[in-house]
């Protein structure tokens, strides 16, 4: 299961030494987004955002607005009313759900990123016996359909007496095959063997190499992995619903309670709850956005 990567043959590897000025301007032309690129991205983003903006609009109106045709495109006056209705819903325990979700998602994310970079690095750059077989197992782990795993996992939680506790939604997810595999694929191309060698020659232990050489180089991928993990954990519903009850909800469990009625769906409460639940994710995004976009431009300018 190892992937080899050959460098494209026709390309000159050495950057031309002459014409530094020309390189600079060529570089600028290469890397500046053209108006066409902007246009394409704007279309993409409008498509991406519309359903969400629209759900915010619904959140600011009344239930019957949901099925209006043409759909309402301007916000109504009710957002704060609806928001306070959500927060005041004692069954949904929304604020507690938010806090629990923050704890759970943070723990899972930190752990997944740490263990994934550690193992991903080992699989990509260290030599050890049984490596390919172990990597194969990791990839296999991702192929296990989630639906039926729920039953054995629930029985396990009962045995551990972890039902209705946050451990139940944290501990089983501290590692993810996805993360190891992703980091491994990234490290494969992003970290040179020479770099590891150089650290070795300098007398660094493997751990030290990981901590001060590899980890910094893995930063973009680690940030992406962290973000994706955080969002996935934040949005997970089925398992938290099964193993937690309304006294210890995650935010998605709270949202589910908001959505219920006696044979009806309170759309406005759902959308308002969703809107409120997105806010922490936006905060994460803003806080770590730089990690994700980091690197490339600095690198190209430096060269």
């Amino acid at each position: 299961m190892s992937t080899t990567m050959t460098r494209p043959r026709n390309l000159p590897v050495e950057p031309p030494k002459k014409n530094r000025g020309r390189v600079r301007s060529a570089s600028a032309a290469l890397w500046d987004a053209s108006p066409l690129t902007y246009l394409a991205l704007i279309i993409t983003i409008v498509l991406s955002i519309f359903p969400i903006v629209w759900s915010f609009i619904v959140a600011s109106r009344e239930n019957s607005a949901v099925t209006d045709i043409p759909p309402p495109l301007t916000p109504g006056p009710n957002f704060f009313d609806n928001a306070s209705r959500v927060l005041a819903n004692t069954d949904a325990n929304f604020v507690y759900g938010l806090i629990n979700s923050a704890v759970v998602s943070s723990c899972v994310t930190l752990s997944v990123v740490f263990f994934s970079t550690l193992a991903g690095f080992a699989f990509a750059k260290l030599k050890f016996r049984g490596k390919n077989a172990l990597l194969l197992i990791i990839i296999l782990t991702m192929m296990i359909p989630t639906q039926v795993n729920i039953i054995p996992l629930y029985l396990l939680m009962v045995k551990f007496d972890w039902t209705n506790t946050l451990q139940a939604v944290i501990v089983p997810f501290l590692v993810k095959g996805f993360g190891v595999f992703m980091i491994r694929q990234y490290a494969e191309s992003a970290i040179s063997d020479e770099l590891i060698e150089a650290a070795r020659v300098d007398g660094a232990s493997t751990w030290r190499t990981y901590w001060s050489v590899v980890l910094p180089a893995l930063r973009p991928a680690a940030a992406v992995l962290g973000l994706l993990t955080f969002m996935e954990t934040w949005n997970d519903f089925l398992w938290p619903y099964v193993v937690l009850n309304g006294d210890t909800p995650t935010v998605q469990v709270s949202l589910n309670i908001l959505a219920t009625g006696y044979y009806k769906t309170d759309y406005v409460q759902v959308f308002t709850g969703t809107a409120l639940a997105i806010v922490p994710l936006l905060l994460v995004f803003i806080a770590f956005g730089r990690q994700i976009i980091g690197g490339i431009m600095e690198g190209s300018v430096k060269a």
Binding site: I191, S192, L195, V201, V213, G299
Partner: peptide
């Protein structure tokens, strides 16, 4: 070029 952040200790 080597990774940008990679630096041997």
């Amino acid at each position: 070029t080597g990774p940008r952040h990679g630096r041997a200790p």
